[in-house]
């Protein structure tokens, strides 16, 4: 019999005294204590609060100094707000698992949709990998994942959908299982799915020292549309030369028909 089964057991009712301070209430809810302090948080992730808390957009004039110090991603500015005041605030996201992590003079890169909140002592920057954000400095941040987070050490290859983020190690690269996809037949197979495609031919590969964070499911958090990086040569995702545009088709595999066409000059 499970722990739920006890009939008549009174459910736990929380108040500002019994709510934890900067810790998890349960696996899905995180409680932030504000004592005249500020937290950056993703828009709309507050579910309830005690006390007086004010939410202001990043563009708010009074926050100029704070934003200059801790927020360096103009693309995501419209998704983020600053909570300030005093009281206890509960954060949650679509009933996903929520966890807090402490960074001590470190760096961590995370999928932008997974990051829920962070202390202004950390500094938020945009990763050069599109769709990811990097936190640098010392402080606490809160991240959501579908299923508990698993920590792995490189060298490792991970499924793109299961990747939550990585700390301290260099950025990943793409890995394709070429043996499976070479030749015209392999190309046809990759394009049409005929003859069996496992769906796992493409991974992210991590090397070097550090930690890789994975979620135990392949359900992605829908990141909010965050625009595009500046259109400059050499900026990945920027659309300029040296970076493939976001609209470009997937990578060209050896043996794909494009090669034949090119060979015949079509």
């Amino acid at each position: 019999m499970s722990t739920y089964g006890t009939p008549g057991a009174a459910p736990r009712v929380l108040d500002p005294m019994t709510l934890p301070s900067d810790d998890n209430v349960d696996a899905y809810t995180f409680c932030v204590e504000l004592k005249g302090t500020q937290w950056f948080m993703q828009k709309g992730k507050m579910i309830a609060y005690y006390g007086t808390v004010e939410f202001n957009g990043i563009g708010h004039g009074r926050l100029d100094r704070l934003v200059r110090k801790a927020f360096h991603s103009p693309l995501h500015a419209s998704d983020w707000v600053v909570a300030e005041g005093s009281g206890k605030m509960l954060l949650a996201d679509r009933a996903f698992d929520v966890n807090s992590y402490d960074l001590d003079d470190g760096n961590l890169t995370i999928r932008s949709g997974n990051l829920l909140a962070f202390q202004p002592s950390l500094s938020l920057k945009q990763s050069i990998v599109p769709g990811f954000l990097t936190l640098i400095g010392t402080g606490k941040f809160v991240a959501a994942s579908n299923g508990p987070v698993v920590f792995m050490e490189p060298p490792i290859r991970v499924d793109p959908q299961a990747l939550v983020g990585w700390a301290d190690c260099p950025s990943p690269c793409h890995h394709y299982d070429h043996g499976y996809l070479t030749g015209v037949l392999g190309g046809l197979r990759a394009m049409t799915g005929l003859g069996g495609v496992s769906g796992e031919e493409h991974q992210f590969e991590f090397v070097g020292a550090g930690t890789v964070l994975l979620q135990s499911s392949e359900a992605l958090m829908t990141g909010q549309a965050a625009g595009a990086p500046p259109q400059q040569p050499g900026v990945p995702g920027g659309g300029g030369p040296g970076g493939s545009g976001p609209g470009a088709a997937g990578p060209r595999l050896p043996g794909q028909l494009g090669d034949l066409q090119r060979r015949f000059g079509l």
């Binding site: 736990r12 009712v13 108040d15 349960d26 899905y28 309830a48 009933a95």
Partner: peptide, 9 residues
């Protein structure tokens, strides 16, 4: 509820 509910007094 979608996810276990939190009871707040």
């Amino acid at each position: 509820s979608d996810g276990p509910a939190v009871l707040l007094r």
